[in-house]
Design a protein around this nucleic acid. Structure first.
Lengths: 339, 339
DNA sequence: ATTAGCAGTCACGTGGGCGGAGTGCCAAGC
DNA sequence: GCTTGGCACTCCGCCCACGTGACTGCTAAT
């Protein structure tokens, strides 16, 4: 196999190439890193690495750049994920701590991550499915118009407008609300949805129709999994690194805006433990062949895990990205867990 | 002044240049448009237009491209805003009609507009300031944790978590809620904010502290003007037209992500009636020198007007953009007005 | 006022020559 | 057996010169 030093050379090549965007030659390696050997020796190691397809030369006589496989080895065995600096950790605490609600928290999160990594950042909305119903509220906006509000035990609020076939007065609504609360409170969203649907059946005549509509609306609402939504920030970083995408930056941007692509990708990455990294061709099936994705899960108790990550060119600072993603995900898990 | 035909020539130049991205020459004009004159005559007209600084030649011997001033004349006097096709109007109705709440409606709106115009689309959240309080709801999440929900007469719901110094039981909360509703219901958000703040003063001893916190939270919440938030879609279109921005696409993208820049720009455009168009250098103060913005207001009764628009290169299909923006804004005003 | 014709200008694509960076290999040294 | 210096070779990127083509601007004729 490749020697210890060869791997050190690979690490040097990755680091220098990520920094300079230029193929790195044997000479510049001995200049910039303190290997105790000559350029010729490095060249021998590079020949080895090339045989293993960890690096490649763009043209016959030029420096080398890492292949996808090379980045993979770097990420799996060579990258040291240095913890963030004190300043950066402090920035996370203060900047995210100011958030008032989930929307704002997630919005600030992506902006922060995109600034820390100088990449495009993506965060997935926590799913609703495993949260429990804490309270149902009905507010009459007009005689035949009722706003149904569903409050989960994690403090998330979902609302939906229901149109009734016949008017319902305040008293009726109050009774219905109590009834719906009895039925749904404490259940998970999924269970609540079925329970509410069932409730429709044996309702008393007088308000059957109204109850039906309201229960259906709430059931419908409870079924919504917000986890199919993404928040994105830092698209400018994608443009900044445009030269690293072989001309098809458009494809990448469209994939991001599609959201579905990233969500499917996140779905596949869910299998991996800890910080998952997908590199270049590994994403070819998603039309993201020159793109790497670094992501990790963050957990909200009582909810399915969601993911947080960055998307960028394969020529990316993986160490930095992994460190930032990990730190922010930990913070998120912690704060969201408090509720 | 410039003759009637000269203006027709300007129109032709704008149209052809927008389509082809190439300087247009006298010969191609007589070929593509049915002027009954020769190329030499067109050249004379072009000399006139150049004198008026409506067009310019990138280099001595090449076709002409419109100047910012030329686009301005085109937009003000020459552009015909053709109504959208039946298919397109139908698309607006069906695609936007499926929305369940305001968030979704605005999200669908920007996506639709960016697709119709093939530009980056932006929509401003309707302001909360002039809406009226319909209902206040307090939900206890934990003994010292209360979720304050503010429902406006337009069906918009805002939520905020309050931390109490001392625990409050359900009965107390119910009384407080009734009290707060008495005070705030029917007032505009702005008035409600002051009324709730005032209420803090002469509260009965027992619950002074609790009431204070809740009233302050609600007042704070009522003050939030969501109109300082934007929803954006179609950034890929910016990249698609990258060559039209003299290399500083990054500046434009950063400005968009800043949001503040666009909001200030919208603020200035509010002075104009109908569809406002800002062209190139007119936006230089915002760091958007090569950028044009087409926007118009949409009104939600009881709220301040908000704006909807597209951002793109000066080399943009203004007719199409204006038509799409106008049509969608009208639809928005109509549907939001129904609530 | 319009038109044809013509000379002038400049961007752009092509092809050749040059310099430099970097490799691969070989033979000598430790 | 690994390492090293040296050397020939390759190929990219750059510059320049040249020809081509697409325009314009001007002038004189209609």
């Amino acid at each position: 196999m490749v020697s210890e030093r060869s791997l050190a050379v690979l690490r040097a090549i990755v680091q220098d190439y990520v920094e300079s965007r230029e193929p790195v030659g044997s000479k510049s390696i001995v200049e910039r890193h303190r290997f105790g050997v000559s350029a010729a020796t490095i060249r021998n190691d590079m020949a080895l690495l090339e045989e293993e397809e960890l690096i490649a030369a763009p043209h016959t006589s030029s420096g080398r750049i890492p292949t996808d496989k090379g980045y993979r080895v770097f990420v799996d065995r060579l990258a040291d994920i240095r913890p963030l600096s004190a300043t950066q950790r402090h920035a996370i605490e203060t900047f995210l701590g100011e958030s008032n609600d989930l929307d704002e928290l997630l919005g600030r999160t992506v902006r922060l991550v995109s600034q820390l990594t100088r990449q495009l950042a993506v965060v997935q909305y926590p799913s609703f499915a495993r949260a429990r119903v804490r309270h149902v509220e009905l507010v009459s906006l007009a005689p035949t118009r009722v706003l149904c509000i569903l409050i989960s035990d994690s403090g998330q609020v979902e609302q939906r407008l229901a149109e009734l076939d016949q008017p319902a007065d305040e008293a009726t609504l109050a009774r219905l609300r109590d009834r719906l609360n009895e039925v749904a409170a404490g259940l998970t969203m999924a269970d609540a949805a079925t329970a509410l649907s069932a409730e429709t059946e044996h309702a008393d005549r007088a308000h059957a129709e109204v109850l039906h509509t309201l229960a259906a609306t709430l059931a419908d609402q409870a079924k919504i999994t917000r986890s199919d939504r993404l928040v994105v920030a830092g698209a400018a970083n994608l443009v900044r690194t445009e030269q690293d995408f072989a001309g098809n930056i458009l494809g990448v941007m469209e994939a991001i805006e599609e959201q579905v692509v990233i969500l499917r990708l996140f779905g596949e990455m869910a299998a991996d433990e800890g910080i998952a990294v997908r590199i270049g061709r590994e994403n070819a099936a998603f039309g993201l062949g020159d793109t790497s994705v670094v992501s990790t899960a963050f957990a909200v108790p009582g909810r399915d895990v969601s993911r947080l990550g960055v998307v960028g060119p394969t020529r990316m600072d993986y160490s930095q990205s992994m460190a930032a993603v990990r730190a922010v995900a930990r913070y998120l898990s912690r704060t969201l867990g408090e509720n």
